[in-house]
Amino acid sequence: MPWTRDDMTARAARELKDGFYVNLGIGIPTLVANHIPPGVQVTLQSENGMLGMGPYPFEGEEDPDLVNAGKMTISELDSSSYFNSAESFAMIRGGHIDLSVLGAMQVAANGDLANWMVPGKMVKGMGGAMDLVAGVKRVIVVMEHCEKSGRSKLVRECTLPLTGKGVVDLLITDLGVFEINRGRSSVRLVELAPGVTLEEVRARTEADFVTDLA
């Protein structure tokens, strides 16, 4: 059975290391916070201006002045700090954040990432994603392996406008885990979701990849 969104984000959470400063993108990557392994302590950065993001507030304790990058109400921790947007992106661009987990529309074999618009159809804007992929030490993408139409989202070359060139380190889909290594080496399938076969992954993937898995 392919991984659910919860499974994918739990797998992504295994990439967290104790002491990491981490930025989680809006949407599915937010769920990574629910799966932080025991014994691992990370500090979550929210690019709208907060370090040490806490969980959702208790009902009735929500504060309109305290939201995350997805505009969701959150809470603070004893360790939290607030700062302005320029400071926040100095932190990101300056290489002080260890890991970022983002969603995607397409990931290419050369490490390119597209996740902000479909020309003529849909535009959300890049938000902080272009800054994150340009500055954060390690970039993990979590996405469904295919579009609803069945078309592979792990592609030879992105056809959508890019968010960054050669920026993806690791890709986690519902079918498995791929080392992208920013395009510096061949895409390598390193894990299969339980019950998913190598043949199935080959059939549903546009990009070429290598693997030691049987």
Partner: peptide, 8 residues
């Protein structure tokens, strides 16, 4: 508030 999220 744009997106109200809370926990029980």
């Amino acid at each position: 508030i744009e997106r109200l999220t809370t926990r029980p």
